[in-house]
């Protein structure tokens, strides 16, 4: 359980880090919080020849409001996101979900960009990014581009980034007025990898009919899984218990195709998906209608 040898660089700027990634290509790995990369190195599942430690790059640590949305530097600690009053105000769904990410000691070190770029199908942040239409700012020495969260995730631990590219910033747009949101997950113990979880964002029109709906699952596929049929079923409906139950049923039976592992078989995962979908859609609709807790 000790990592293989590697060359270590601790650049002070993004430009220096990108230069190192360009020089070493696929042999180099950026090291963010290390809460996923270092365990895989300890197991020797990953043996990067070069580590580019981003922890000394101050320009990557920030949370700010810009163009009405939220901007986070890739190295912002998850604990900082969790505790930010700005995040709570601008992106309450993100705020609600943060305490579900692992344990406080992990969030103290883990970063928002590290988790987004790692693309673990059991992780919360990629699901939240898709649910909230986040955009990723990806840079290399020669290029800089914004990638929508939907286009960013390409499968199991796979993203649209090239080896010489790095995620430097993420933008979460503000939800339009009339929106409701919710996140929930089920894990055997709080803080462990969830067996299933989901984020919901719902928008009601002036007549209190659902005009927008998005439901995204974690731990039921190779990445964030959008329940598109369930969302389509809900649009145009009154957000009542019957419509929500039907959408949750469709999500669990039509939209996802979970595989089993030692923690939960496919049938149990579908059961969890239906229950969690009903919970988050109900809460999201209540919040959109302003009837939460009534």
């Amino acid at each position: 359980m000790k990592p293989a040898a590697f060359d270590y660089f601790a650049p002070g700027t993004v430009d220096e880090a990108l230069g190192l990634l360009a020089d070493y290509g696929g042999d180099a790995k950026p090291l963010a919080g290390g809460q996923s990369l270092v365990p895989t190195m300890n197991f020797r599942l990953a043996q990067p020849a070069v580590l580019v430690d981003l922890n000394g790059i101050e320009e990557l640590f920030f949370i700010r409001e810009e163009e009405g949305g939220l901007r986070c530097g890739a190295m912002t600690r998850q604990r900082s996101v969790e505790r930010s009053a700005l995040v709570q105000r601008i992106s309450p769904l993100l705020h609600e979900a943060m305490p579900h990410i692992a344990h406080s000691q992990i969030r103290n070190r883990g970063t928002i960009g590290g988790s987004l770029a790692h693309a673990d199908p059991a992780a919360e942040l990629p699901v939240l990014a898709v649910a909230l239409d986040a955009r990723m700012y990806v840079r290399s020495v020669t290029d800089a581009r914004w990638v929508s969260a939907r286009d960013f995730y390409m499968g199991l631990f796979a993203t649209a980034m090239l080896p010489e590219e790095m995620l430097v910033e993420v933008a979460f747009p503000t939800l339009p007025s009339g929106s409701g949101w919710a996140f929930d997950e089920v894990a055997r113990q709080h803080g462990n990898y969830a067996m299933c979880g989901a984020a919901a964002v719902v928008g009601l029109d002036g007549r209190r009919v659902v005009e927008r709906a998005r439901l995204v699952f974690l731990s039921v596929g190779e990445g964030p899984v959008e329940a598109e049929q369930a969302a389509a079923l809900l649009v145009g409906e009154q957000p009542n218990a019957e419509a929500i139950r039907a959408a949750a049923e469709t999500a669990a039976t039509q939209d996802i195709d979970p595989v089993g592992d030692i923690h939960a078989g496919p049938a149990f995962r579908r059961h969890l998906a239906r229950v969690i979908a009903e919970r988050v859609l109900t809460r999201a609709c209540e919040r959109a209608a302003g009837t939460e807790g009534q």
Binding site: H103, Q105, N108
Partner: peptide, 25 residues
């Protein structure tokens, strides 16, 4: 040695972290 058990938790600049998920450098 993969961050799950918490036995190696120390404070780095006053913040509780897993020492098995940090390199000494």
């Amino acid at each position: 040695e993969h961050g799950v058990c918490g036995a190696c938790t120390v404070l780095l600049d006053g913040v509780a972290v897993r020492s098995c998920l940090l390199f000494a450098v």
